[in-house]
């Protein structure tokens, strides 16, 4: 039945379109021009629509900024995250300035110079000075952004360590994460996918003395204020360990180890007290109540951000940032590799 309905609607749509075309053609005939010829009236109409669109674009841009900036990520929870957000804010301001400058000019010109039969355009083929200006100005602005960006990048990727970072391995597989803490010696034992056997689910080398005190966990707990060096491995396909709240991300690639270091600066508990976060959580819980879902309290989370298969969209692990004492307590509760194997 719905098939027949669709067919009827389609036929009607085509008939309507045919009639419309006839109307367009007849009305042009009445004006003694061919339908395809662009009249002054067309230019006028389209010019005004261009101007209207230009206004609409800028207006809706600001509307979106106002409405949707709150849904973007709240303040960063890591030391370098602040630098990241500063760089982002400045770069964004530069491109937003360009956007709200150039777009209106484009649509304004389209309206202002809408054609008329009795007008003639100005023959103006080039102007070296103008072209020089708009080569050099972007070049200078970009030079500043490039240098600022490179400095930030270099600081993030080559952190200077005043204290030894805590080493944690993040192990990816379809479709879950596992963490391995380096234990007393803060050194991870050798591991390889080939060594996976029975209970040794992530292939730790049991003969490596550095590995006996490693602890395998299903959640990441981090002590606040201490640098953490993450080492990433993958068991099967490429995954990407994405820590949006910490402004951190690194791919997990089978056959090699990658790494990323950051220092968490805000505990989960503190973040839940943040006014912006509380407003966000309140909005989210309003939605969740309507849908009959359980209430949500703010949590840091690790996501997979590289397509990895059917459950890619639900590959996650909880991250808790807490005081040094709480962290130490949690860690002692975890079993070492020597104990489990």
């Amino acid at each position: 039945m719905s098939g027949i309905m669709t067919l009827i609607v389609l036929v009607l749509a085509v008939l309507t379109a045919l009639q419309l075309i006839r109307i367009f053609e007849l009305s042009s005939k009445a004006r003694q021009t061919a339908e395809y010829e662009v009249t002054d009236r067309d230019n006028n109409n389209q010019g005004w629509l261009m101007l209207l669109f230009g206004f609409g674009l800028i207006a809706s841009f600001f509307w979106m900024l106002n409405a949707w900036l709150p849904v973007t990520l709240p303040k960063p929870a890591s030391a370098h995250g602040t630098d990241y957000d500063n760089l982002m804010t400045i770069s964004m301001l530069v491109i937003i300035a360009m956007f709200v400058l150039v777009q209106p000019i484009l649509f304004y010109f389209a309206w202002k110079y809408r054609g008329a039969k009795d007008r003639k355009a100005t023959y103006y083929e080039h102007n070296n000075r103008l072209e020089f200006i708009w080569t050099i100005v972007p070049a200078v602005v970009l030079a500043v952004l490039i240098i600022y960006g490179m400095t930030t990048w270099s600081n993030v990727m080559n952190p200077k360590n005043e204290q030894e970072p805590l080493v944690i391995e993040v192990y990816a597989q379809q479709f879950k994460w596992t963490a391995r803490y380096a234990g007393q010696d803060n050194q991870l034992g050798y591991a390889n996918v080939r060594l996976i056997k029975d209970a040794n689910v992530i292939g730790v080398d049991t003969l490596d003395t550095k590995g006996g005190d490693d602890k395998i966990t299903t959640e990441i707990h981090l002590p606040v204020g201490r640098p953490v060096l993450f080492k990433f491995r993958s068991q099967d396909v490429i995954h990407s360990a994405y820590f949006p709240h910490f402004r951190a991300q690194m791919n997990c690639v089978p056959g090699m180890t990658t790494q990323f270091q950051f220092t968490p600066t805000v505990t989960t508990a503190e973040m839940r007290q943040d006014a912006e976060v509380q407003a966000k959580v309140a909005r989210i819980n309003k939605i969740r109540t309507e849908k009959g879902l359980e209430a949500y309290a703010y949590d840091y989370v690790l996501l997979c951000n590289k397509i990895c298969g059917s459950a890619h969209y639900n590959m996650q692990m909880n991250i808790v940032v807490e005081s040094e004492a709480e962290y130490a307590k949690w860690l002692t509760e975890q079993k070492t590799v020597a104990e489990t194997l």
Partner: peptide, 27 residues
């Protein structure tokens, strides 16, 4: 990568300047 923005900007500005003082026919 960011260098590409320079020739791209030149293109964009040149298009806009082509409209300037034109006699635009909106086909």
């Amino acid at each position: 990568t960011l260098l590409i923005a320079i020739p791209s900007a030149v293109k964009a500005f040149n298009y806009i300047t082509t409209l300037w003082k034109g006699n635009i026919r909106f086909t």
